[in-house]
Design a protein around this nucleic acid. Sequence first.
DNA 1: CGCTAGAATTTGAGCGCGCAAATCGCGGCG
DNA 2: CGCCGCGATTTGCGCGCTCAAATTCTAGCG
Lengths: 351, 351
Amino acid sequence: MAEPGHREPAGGSAPTLQDVARAAGVSRQTVSNVLHAPERVRPATRERVVEFISRLGYQPNRQAQALARSTSHMIGYHIRPLAPEALTSIQDRFLHALAEAGRAADHHLLLFSAEDESAEIDSVGRLHRGGAADAFVLYDLTADDRRPKALLDMGVPFVAFGRTDAGADTYPWVDVDNVLGTRLAVDHLVNRGHRRIAFLGWPSGRTIGDRRARGWHQAVESHRLASACGVLDARSEDSVQAAIQVTFRLLEHSEPPTAIVTATDTLAVGAMQAAQRWGLEVGRDLAVVGFDDTPTAAALELSSIRQPIELVGQQVVAALLGTDEAGPGHQLLEPQLVIRSSSARPARPRR
Amino acid sequence: MAEPGHREPAGGSAPTLQDVARAAGVSRQTVSNVLHAPERVRPATRERVVEFISRLGYQPNRQAQALARSTSHMIGYHIRPLAPEALTSIQDRFLHALAEAGRAADHHLLLFSAEDESAEIDSVGRLHRGGAADAFVLYDLTADDRRPKALLDMGVPFVAFGRTDAGADTYPWVDVDNVLGTRLAVDHLVNRGHRRIAFLGWPSGRTIGDRRARGWHQAVESHRLASACGVLDARSEDSVQAAIQVTFRLLEHSEPPTAIVTATDTLAVGAMQAAQRWGLEVGRDLAVVGFDDTPTAAALELSSIRQPIELVGQQVVAALLGTDEAGPGHQLLEPQLVIRSSSARPARPRR
DNA sequence: CGCTAGAATTTGAGCGCGCAAATCGCGGCG
DNA sequence: CGCCGCGATTTGCGCGCTCAAATTCTAGCG
């Protein structure tokens, strides 16, 4: 007989509820009760059972629990390949946040991949019907994402990080206020004395990009800045090379901007490079503020808008497991400006 | 009766093997056979069953399968928080690769987090004994990582990405040849005509850093480069700021290097920034080669050593599920040099 | 001292599936 | 024409657990 505190080193297979019960001289169900409803069992018995549980190193079998309770305690997540150009570490942070939040609630993450959107939807259906995951997290929603509706139709529980343009009221989501993000950036630059603040974004069509553009627009108007903002509103695909070219075009203008707010850090890097080649020193001659606060931004001393990804993860999991049916399941979180030297110094008039 | 091709829209709960059997007028086991050993069932029956399987949208319950077969088809993975300074997207790429490779073998990933190394080991034990995952992948092994031994002792199957300094022959791993990596970098720079090639790495102590340093050392010797390599071997903590300072020290030397090989892209970014502030143009006056080929490297046109992460993922999964007991379970994969403008031009003599 | 309410504990059934052994059905052969 | 043998199909059982219902125990009371 093993002495107390000594873990059975897996002699053969893992001990079952029955094994513990036998060892403690009680029935299966009593052991189960000790675990799930301790108040139901007499203290003396409880202690004895607890003792044997740890002595045998008993660990409930998740599959059996899942089968019996018909709930897997798994959250499904489709992992996307990261776009080659993206500087983002957001998915990484998000996954970690989800895992952390899940841990607190005794849930784990089930990661899967799929060829494309249809395959992803298929997989979700399969995993859900197969009981592999109870609910799903949707990441990186596009403006016209087909997934929310598809999952809704299949009756699969889910929460999205981000939201579609239309029908966002039909499903639960958590999102970051992108409009506010660029507004924060502009406000900050205005405080630093800038008046000609350009925007460098994606061509419209992508929800997120559009929202970030809108934030700039709103801020520019509320501060009554350069009315000829048409020329300060530049768009480029999300790559450094493209951003460099577009920034050149901004700079060669007769009244060039003294600051640039961009829709992504990638674009910001392009803007910084362009400025440098143009002979301007970033932070002194031209201020730049990026979006996403990627590690690259930190490395290059680029001010950037940081999304509260960790909080998003927590909220998503809370909404997923939430018994709090009260809330509408729609959460708009506030991003934060991280100031670094690319925008730290006050504006100095040029030309 | 539903017409063929029409999916039952989850009227109530998911259909079971029994449901399909009843609908098709056969027994439970026959349906199971159609799925797992089709050759055992007569073509006519088989077709009928297949028909009903898709008509009802039947999907085997993974938990029940797991319970009956006592194998979960899950691979456990501990997700680490990414270090704030790290530019890396490697974990992201790796996770995706694992998910892809797992998909091909009908395995999914089980993500979990833990406070620290001990908690991670505990979790692994718990998850394994609880049947939640069959095997585990260990990521980012340190020189004296305690995990391999711990899992070995617990009898938990696993494969590591990376390896410890000692005892690496006692467990299966897949690793990238870091020594070769820096050697490739030096060879490339020598081809471009460089003779004074510095190394900027971590302070020794970390396995990976030491291996990368060794590669530089070997290459420098085999090419019979600057004998006074002591002064060209610089170390700094893995941050941009620290790297800038250390690079300054390299540059202020009487015979400064014309090229710098670094142990990480983060350090390379520092080197590039330092060069710039020193008035040197990277790619023309000073060549820089990084390590890891992070997105940042691509954005800054930094040449870098790229690890074949996708391949690592495949090999890890293969080793994990591999029936091919033949192999020693040790794989050393070759990294690749990605040439960009930071090192593209031939060396030009300075001073 | 017997009875009973209520607490403590046990038993029975089943979650959906896979394995192994049992049964069924059919053509061929003596 | 009946029996054998083999492929096709079915049945029984258990994986480890939970839920609900049944049973046993305990203590309190008349």
